[in-house]
């Protein structure tokens, strides 16, 4: 089975643009609205959606996404709920790649084997477990490979070149380069540094490289689009959802804006 993520990136390359990867939290503010948001995002040009799996202790998240996790948990959101949500989303959208992004403890609550069975049923495309470096990931790596679910891995500004090479070799789908030392929603992105690091990563891997953690608006997206194959935008969407009001309209216009910057 060809990875949908791979296919999307090669189409985007042919169209000579960059991938827009958007992040929201599953079940924030509730299941039905999450699905509506996903549909609107796709309509306005999102290529891949990272669906955050809410966790009580999201250590790598800034305040915006922490609040998103809290809102979702208050509504009873969970990993199983995210699979149910994805199945509903799949009724109308079989094509858009979906990645579950979250923390080890919630993923392990199902166990690697059961998780992958669910992943196949819901046509999940990839997983990104924030606190699962390659050294700690044997079960999920083995089970994911069996069923063709991509394992997206993080590379940070602090990662040495030799370690980056090792991480790339155990990664599939795309490589996620964390553009800043910090948590999600940080604002001190240095485009020159990112450029240097990404070109080094190109020597380790042929996988597409997406950049995230410091991309919050059109200007930061545009500052890195030339070096990357895609950018990940999360906190700004989770903030819009938190604000309330006409969420769908706000999300649509933000997605459109970012998508235009990247085309």
């Amino acid at each position: 089975m060809t990875s949908k993520i791979k296919e999307v990136f090669s189409n985007i390359k042919a169209e000579n643009r960059k991938a827009l990867i958007t992040y929201i939290v599953s079940g924030d503010p509730d299941t039905e609205t999450t699905i509506e948001i996903m549909n609107s995002m796709v309509q306005q040009g999102t290529d891949i959606i990272e669906l955050g799996i809410p966790f009580s202790d999201p250590m790598a998240e800034g305040i915006s996404i922490q609040k998103g996790h809290e809102r979702a948990l208050e509504k009873g959101a969970s990993l199983s709920g995210a699979f149910e949500l994805l199945k509903k989303f799949r009724v109308n959208d079989e094509k858009t790649p979906i990645v579950f992004m979250g923390y080890m403890n919630t993923f392990e609550s199902l166990g690697a084997n059961k998780f992958m069975q669910e992943a196949v049923k819901a046509s999940l495309d990839g997983i990104l477990i924030v606190d699962m470096p390659p050294e700690e990931s044997s079960n999920f790596s083995i089970e994911a490979e069996k069923v063709g679910v991509d394992i997206i891995r993080l590379i940070a500004p602090t990662t040495s070149s030799s370690r980056a090479k090792k991480i790339c070799s155990q990664c599939s789908g795309y490589v996620y380069y964390i553009s800043v030392k910090g948590i999600t929603g940080a604002s001190n992105i240095n485009a020159e540094e990112v450029k240097a690091r990404v070109s080094e990563l190109r020597s380790h891997t042929d996988l597409p490289i997406a950049i995230g953690f410091g991309i919050k608006d059109s200007s930061s997206a545009s500052s890195v689009k030339d070096v990357a194959d895609g950018v990940v935008v999360g906190s700004v969407f989770v903030d819009l959802i938190g604000e309330g009001g006409n969420i769908i309209e706000k999300v649509e216009s933000k997605t459109k804006e970012l998508s235009e910057v990247l085309s």
Binding site: D131, P133, E135, A156
Partner: peptide
């Protein structure tokens, strides 16, 4: 050498902290 006590312990952190 992997920082484990039996199956416990280890280093379950985001990549930024692994080198540190």
């Amino acid at each position: 050498k992997n920082g484990r006590f039996g199956i416990y312990g280890g280093r379950y952190v985001a990549e930024t902290l692994v080198p540190a």
